[in-house]
Amino acid sequence: MSATDAVVAVENLAKRYGEVTAVEDLTFRVRPGRIVGLLGRNGAGKTTTLRMLLGLTRPSSGTAAVFGRPYAELPRASHRVGVSMEGVGPTPGTSGRRDLKIWAKTLGLPAARVDEVLHEVGLDDAADRKVKGYSLGMRQRLNLATALLADPELLVLDEPANGLDPDGIRWLRTTLRRLAGEGRTILLSSHLMAEVEQTVDDIVVIQQTLRYCGSLDELTGGGTRRLEDCFFELVGDPSRSQTHA
């Protein structure tokens, strides 16, 4: 698959902060209509990679493109790409509904879309409560609602299951599979190996640089091996990487 055909194309991407290398010579592509899990230890460069993809962090070298272009050059980028990640959060002091209305107005969307996404993420009953009183799981649902507002083709989700209880995790899995079934592409980072194993089609494993990019089935032998075991074979023994814990 060529870089122009890929929904996401990362080519020789690197980010250095002085003498510290966060990402080094990273290359991978994301096919349309797939759920792709971006896996790595804490400090492996997952969030940095997503931030470079979205134009929030400038690469030291290499390129990152969505739909064939850098995010900053993509027409209607905020409509085509929905984002849920730290730093892209609600307006302080607002309710869930009010925050989504602000986003909807900014994006030029009808106010009716707010109620649709609130229902979609299960926040109907909490919509008029202040976001500062939300649990972490409720904030995750609100973040996903914000990402879905413009009905995007691509979702970029940084640790979307963080803070969700078992019911919430199951709901998220079902929701993501439904969205992919509608033709959307989803790139998500996560630490929850067992959940990723039940959700994604493809896997990208990084530890500063690429360790694996391909289908989940290929990596796990069609489910004959656990994803967690495969992951640690690729990134090394966790007992030797205490600084990343």
Rank of each mutant, 00 (worst) to 15 (best):
A161L: 06
Q207L: 03
V200R: 01
L210P: 00
L179N: 03
P166Y: 04
L192V: 15
C213F: 00
T174M: 14
S135T: 14
L179T: 09
Q207V: 00
T174N: 15
K132P: 01
L192G: 05
I206H: 02
T175Q: 14
R211G: 00
R178P: 00
T146I: 05
R177M: 03
T209A: 06
V196R: 01
R184A: 06
L179K: 10
R170V: 04
G133K: 11
G214S: 07
A161I: 02
L149V: 13
D151Y: 08
A127R: 11
E182R: 14
A145L: 09
S190A: 14
T199A: 04
V131N: 03
V200W: 11
L136F: 12
T175C: 12
C213K: 00
A194G: 09
T199S: 07
L176T: 05
V131M: 09
G133P: 08
M193I: 08
Q207S: 08
M193P: 00
N162D: 10
E182A: 14
I169G: 10
P166F: 06
D158Y: 00
S190Q: 06
E153F: 09
L187N: 04
L172V: 09
L157I: 05
A180W: 07
Y212I: 00
T199Q: 07
T146Q: 14
V196Q: 02
Q140G: 08
L157V: 06
L164D: 05
D128P: 05
Q207R: 11
L154N: 04
L155M: 13
A194D: 13
R211A: 04
R139K: 15
A180H: 04
V131T: 15
C213G: 04
L187E: 04
K132W: 10
D151T: 12
G183H: 10
R177L: 14
V200Y: 07
G137L: 08
V196H: 02
S215A: 07
L144H: 12
G168V: 10
R173C: 08
I186H: 03
L157R: 03
L210K: 07
L210D: 00
Q207Y: 00
G163I: 09
L149A: 12
R139N: 13
D151K: 13
R184M: 10
T185Y: 05
